[in-house]
Design a protein around this nucleic acid. Sequence first.
DNA 1: TGTCAACACGAAACCGATTTCGTAGTGTTA
DNA 2: TAACACTACGAAATCGGTTTCGTGTTGACA
Lengths: 340, 340
Amino acid sequence: MRQKITIKTIAKELGVSTSTVSKALKDSHEISADTKQKIQAYANLYNYKPNNLALQLRNQKTKLIGVILPKIVHHFFSTIIKGIEEVANERGYHIMVCFSNESFKKEYENLRVLSNGSVDGLIVSIANETMENKDFSQFKDLVSEEIPLVMIDRVVSDILCDKVVVDDVGGGYKATDYLLRTGCKRIALVTTPNHVSVSALRRQGYEKALIEHYIKSDTSIIVEIDEEENFNDQIAPIFNKDIDAILAVNEIYAAKCIKYAKAKGLEVPYDISVIGFTDGLISEYSSPSITSVAQHGFLMGKQAVDMLINHIENDSEDYKPKRNVISSDLIIRESTKTSS
Amino acid sequence: MRQKITIKTIAKELGVSTSTVSKALKDSHEISADTKQKIQAYANLYNYKPNNLALQLRNQKTKLIGVILPKIVHHFFSTIIKGIEEVANERGYHIMVCFSNESFKKEYENLRVLSNGSVDGLIVSIANETMENKDFSQFKDLVSEEIPLVMIDRVVSDILCDKVVVDDVGGGYKATDYLLRTGCKRIALVTTPNHVSVSALRRQGYEKALIEHYIKSDTSIIVEIDEEENFNDQIAPIFNKDIDAILAVNEIYAAKCIKYAKAKGLEVPYDISVIGFTDGLISEYSSPSITSVAQHGFLMGKQAVDMLINHIENDSEDYKPKRNVISSDLIIRESTKTSS
DNA sequence: TGTCAACACGAAACCGATTTCGTAGTGTTA
DNA sequence: TAACACTACGAAATCGGTTTCGTGTTGACA
């Protein structure tokens, strides 16, 4: 990079001290109008910009927020980022984004680097691998170092920090309840293995709704997809079980189920209703469009960063962790019958 | 934040100088084994981490790359980010992500902040608004300040920096050519206003293919969507023009066209073929799945960051700008006939 | 004419590291 | 014993700003 112009350069060039330059650029009353004018003109001419690093070091704050998410090519997570970035910008912050790719090691590495003073606070959604091996020590370290932290979506309860979560139980409940109210009797559940905490919660909601309608949940129509490659082989069995509806824990599963049903000659929603989670582009634009549980990632991002910045800028000794729950709503489209 | 432990703390506590501590922590031969052991043990015990800001200021490099994109909730751009982040991490960098939301002002603001020494280099895809008003002065400033810059996807030719672009002309050509080869005769184009540079290029490819097949392009079957709200009203006219295929400049337009065609009782692809751009989730999971032009955003991100870091780490005086073109491929799915 | 306040500016400390250079103390050698 | 090398460490400069405090000059007032 070319020789940057600094306060020192200006001071030397104009034969004044660095303090004078600094004050003049801030329009301090201590400096005479003449000198100010001269310094400001010079600074403008040579396009002087104060070095951010120096300011950050001096002020002991970076106005930067670290964000660590499991993945990015995903509607829910990208809307979260959008929400975070929007509010962060409004409040004068920028964001550093990292991805764990669901890997414990990469998450650990990112946390390590970002907690070295690079950022004023962190927003994290935990990687699946970390959820499985249950090693949360690095998060506990953050808390004990008093680095402001907000956990979103995938959270663990014994870490004392702010949290924003989706009401996944409620979402599962609402979807299942809606299917039952529109006349469905046997609702299959297409989900992921249970260690994925959000799936487990959605399943709870599903089971809760069934119970309320006096229906026994039947594990033979619940599929836990382990490898996405042979998705169709894994869901095939439930189609022989007289089902008239499917609740899928994400929109890709929902779309795949619809495709499979069509291939089997079933018509959606007349022969079979389908509801997915994650109200993304697939749900909106496929045909039939898919009824789905919206999780409001945008709102989640906004709330998370608001809590974080409040924490950062509030230097009272003891901060009481808050927990926000974002309710999930059912967006009704063409893949379900209308309530009658 | 709690009182952080610094080199100074350690030095005072152990009664040595800061230089000794610094050297001991780097295992310098200048320090006796005894002293080293003592200092390292102390640092470990109190979980000392060197302050990143101080290091960045000292080393005059941040190991940070600024990324400014028009939007995030979009398959193409999110894959670009993924590509950038992956290679950046491999090479020891992190990324700061900002979004312009297609706004000139926000782009300008982001550029201003990031070029203050916060990052070692920038990757930018220009906002639509900037494309329209053609004010690229801030980019020229970056170049003259010798801040490494890579422009991706939406680029302007008279800025002397590295570039990575998609072969949009080729993509438009390949798609149109394929439609013609599979028996389509009248291919409508559903596009955006022409100032969006990528749309203009895709249209060039479309027209080139028509010419090669001795077909005159007919503006009555070309629609420039201006407001997405009444999309259907805008495309309705072309359906009365005997068309047997549609080339849409993005996957949302393609999906909406398919939906509209279905509603009109047309069957895809037997009555009408459809091809979109951006090979995202919609194309893959809707039914019928949509034949589309893949733009390889992942690859684009990887190449961009590679060029950028090469530039950053190569301090030879004159850097010659490079320009990579990523070829776009046709992914054939169910919304088009098979070639026979 | 002496006193004092206001003005305009500079010196120096500071943020947290790294690194160059200097030096006290010890041991070796002629 | 004088000269010298080596070990182990510290002082100080540096990165680029901000901020506190001190000070020389001026003018007003008694």
